[in-house]
Design a protein around this nucleic acid. Structure first.
Lengths: 202, 202, 202, 202
DNA sequence: CATGAATGAGACTTCATTCAT
DNA sequence: CATGAATGAAGTCTCATTCAT
């Protein structure tokens, strides 16, 4: 189809519209509670139209997740591949992730569904696999000792998502301090954590 | 009702039966996909009987979660309240959690669901709230500096659950090394992590 | 379940109710046009109840068809197995079939759906297989010469159903004359057919 | 529109394409199960185009049926109008029908649907009405006695279609013997049927 | 005319929950 | 209390048909 035809434009636009609606609905109602109809109703489109774009709720979910992954993964990879030190590597990762998480709080909430069936892999898709691979590379480059990359990746992912959750619940989030907190923890441990007040305005 | 009466025994027993069935079904099918009917069908009981014990799927889930929390929280608290050093505090926490997670792998898989509003707090309920409180106490006792207890708790919880996930997927899990890995990470950072082979037999 | 319990009685009764409703709806609207909802609406039952008894429209159809077959086949078989002559055999078959068709006009209309997918076998199920088998037996017993039983069965079935159709459309049907007409045709051919007026009051 | 114009040619061609597709789809999937979309998908055309040629599935069906009727009816009429004897009349009918049925097996399978109100008359439209009229004429001409023409027509139609069905299922079909079988049956009855082997190679 | 996405009515079906036995 | 059939709201999805391009 001609990429400039009105037809094509509408198709692209409608797909966008549905994805945005899904993002909102998932964020507001939660994945489980949300229905295809809810998504459609958050749209000027007719119910049948949904099925011209996605075969099921699962499929929009996957598309949304992939879209977010596509946004965030290159950012994270770039940070890490340029890293000349473990510090850069870890700090860059947390900073990029948390800052993205702040901007796209709703998206992340919409997507952070955990269920043995499907989303066991969600965090992995958005962050984990790349991370593990990059840790391996970093080990080759001598940034890290020969440690268990899979475990380290799991730990970083765990921290990142849990901390992002906390940030989402706090009114004023200070991405920088939160990122510093996480990085210090990973790099030098609890003893080196920023003291006084709280790292993030509560 | 007399606690030794036949009827009371049956009631207790049926409740158990339903909870065990739910544990299995949630673990196998995932919380979201599982239906009340699935749970009953994994039981010799009739569908109506379910409602003599629980009002909904959510409620069985909560009961299961609380049961697990009730098992694990005292263990963790004991470890931490006896702790005379940050080392003891952190190491005790990970060791107790991961060892329990290994024994009750299915249970944990069954309830480690992130979904809707409800489960945003699941990990927190099983582990986090106590942890935060204990960290605050530990700060009082001078074990930790005055750091952001909420964030630290989030980080520990995130690591613990993600690492437990990894352990579940690996064939031979070595709780001790995994716990050491986590503790070292939190206490002294990535630089002090056990090197060589892998911390856990892969 | 106790066959005399109220529960059991209701189950039997509801199944009957649904089958009767289906018979009526199929007869009135035709199989294709009829919907499960139409059937349920012709019933005091709730929509979900349908699915406690049948899995789909096809399944009610099949049940109905089998029920009719179960009613009519023994009658036809009895007629033919007692037959001492080709005359008895053929006449008995037509008489029994057409008389039954008259009484159960609606049922037969409901059931006489022809479609390569499913009902290619319908006429066969109600009439054909038995007939062919009985013709073979009759050949053994010397009632017929060694002719092509399958073709003869097809011919008889074709005549029977088409004539039943005609009867259904005529106001006053005279089963006896119609049966005689068919029998004479099969037995001795067109030359021996009853002359004058019409065999069946138009 | 100019009958030789490009546009006219295309119109004729598209109509053909749709009809052929419908023929295939009805034959393969059955009329009931087939959807307009199935038919279009069996075509290089777009869905909207269908409606430039037919208003509905029913209408394609009718067109297909009429096309077949248009092919076969003149052949049958010719045979019968030339007939100087009941023998010629009947034999010609069966021979022409079955031989045509053999050549157009798929077409016939596609439209031999019995369903709802519509198709009650399908066999009649393809064969029956003419037949009845011709029988009446034949009675005038003295070929037949004054019998019930409608019933005789029904009988002949029933035999013809059912036997055609059998032929379609058999590997090697011998149109001549099958036609002889039917004719003898109608003309002189079961006693005069060809004995030995089977009338048609099984 | 051809195209093919949009439409939306409505069919199908599941499932939590109730309630007579 | 246990039972399990009945209920009917609600969700999923298909498909004939329309209509802007």
């Amino acid at each position: 189809m001609d990429i400039r035809s009105k037809r094509f434009q509408t198709k692209v636009h409608n797909r966008r519209v549905i994805l945005e609606a899904a993002r909102g609905v998932f964020g507001r109602e939660g994945y489980r509670t949300a229905t295809v109809r809810d998504i459609i109703n958050a749209t000027p489109l007719a119910s049948g139209t949904f099925y011209n774009y996605f075969r099921s709720k699962e499929e929009v979910y996957a598309a949304l997740r992939d879209e977010i992954a596509l946004e965030i993964r290159p950012l994270l990879r770039a940070e890490r591949q340029q890293a000349w030190s473990a510090d850069d590597f870890v700090t860059g990762t947390f900073r990029a992730f948390l800052s993205h998480a702040e901007q796209r709080a709703q998206s992340l909430a919409a997507i952070d569904v955990q269920d043995d069936q499907m989303s066991a892999g969600m965090r992995t898709i958005v962050m984990g696999d790349d991370l593990r691979h990059d840790i391996d590379s970093a080990i080759q480059r001598g940034l890290f000792a020969e440690l268990d990359a899979e475990l380290l990746a799991a730990a970083i992912v765990g921290i990142a998502f849990e901390v992002a959750n906390v940030m989402r619940q706090r009114k004023h989030t200070d991405v920088k301090s939160a990122a510093r907190f996480c990085s210090e923890l990973i790099l030098r441990g609890v003893a080196s954590l920023p003291v006084t007040v709280s790292a993030i305005a509560k």
